[in-house]
Design a protein around this nucleic acid. Structure first.
Lengths: 131, 131
DNA sequence: TATATGTTATACTACATATATAACATATAT
DNA sequence: ATATATGTTATATATGTAGTATAACATATA
């Protein structure tokens, strides 16, 4: 499980970290019940502050992706990932709307947009194979 | 051209305003060469500060969506919207990746994801008819 | 007993967001 | 000419977020 961060990005580090972990789960490189590094260990590895890692862990716990056991430490939720509900779908739509609108303005039609989405799905699928 | 803002959202007002204007262009409710309200007028209408509107206008000018003439005021670029290049496609992919990954984890498969995208394209198309 | 864990608290710097005034140069309408 | 509206620039301020730096605590483990 490699974590790649871009410190030049305007996306906060803890957000990038959350995204990397969720991507790891999607790729099945992180399996249900699998343990994640401690906040101190991961922070040390990446070279960031422990609180930044903790913030990402806490939010992913809040969202249902992670569990934090006194014994087992931080683990990927063994019950599986949280399911999409009405509220989540609305949020997702609201996030996609401006991206689709802008790409549409820039001449990216539906077919081309779908091609781009497909490359991401391929990326997920390939990661799956590597396990 | 109605502009709907959510002051409770964690998305900055000037970002929402940019998105609304781009959506307006996508829907062809804002046509090339069409004039936008002055920073003061729009700020007054919405009930926000003039600088917040100015920030949105300036960035959209920088990105090529708007032109700002001393004479004609702020207008939608008559030459049309900026085209997608390699750099933009990479940025778009990077933005879509975490959203696809999370929705995938939550059980939204490719077909379902595409349905959601389609609803947005429908929204754009409908706006088009209303002109 | 020592160590590693998650957790909490405090303090600090830096930056982004948003607002509030004020002023300036320029184009337009009266 | 004068008044008005425009984009533009300059300060200043308040607020919130991001990220770091220490420190300490309770608990589970070696």
């Amino acid at each position: 499980m490699y974590i790649q961060l871009d410190f030049e990005s305007d996306i906060p580090i803890y957000e990038q970290l959350k995204d990397e972990i969720i991507m790891g789960i999607a790729k099945k490189q992180l399996l249900p019940g699998e343990r994640l590094p401690s906040v101190r260990a991961l922070a040390g590895d990446i070279g960031i502050n422990l609180h930044t890692v903790n913030k990402a862990y806490q939010q992913l716990k809040q969202e249902g992706f992670l569990l934090i056991h006194r014994q087992r430490g931080v683990v990927v939720n063994p019950e599986g990932t949280p399911k999409a509900d009405e509220k989540y779908e609305k949020k997702l739509t609201a996030l996609l709307r401006p991206q689709i609108a802008e790409s549409f303005c820039r001449g990216i039609n539906k077919e081309k947009f779908w091609e781009i989405c497909e490359t991401v799905y391929e990326e997920i699928k390939e990661g799956d194979i590597n396990e």
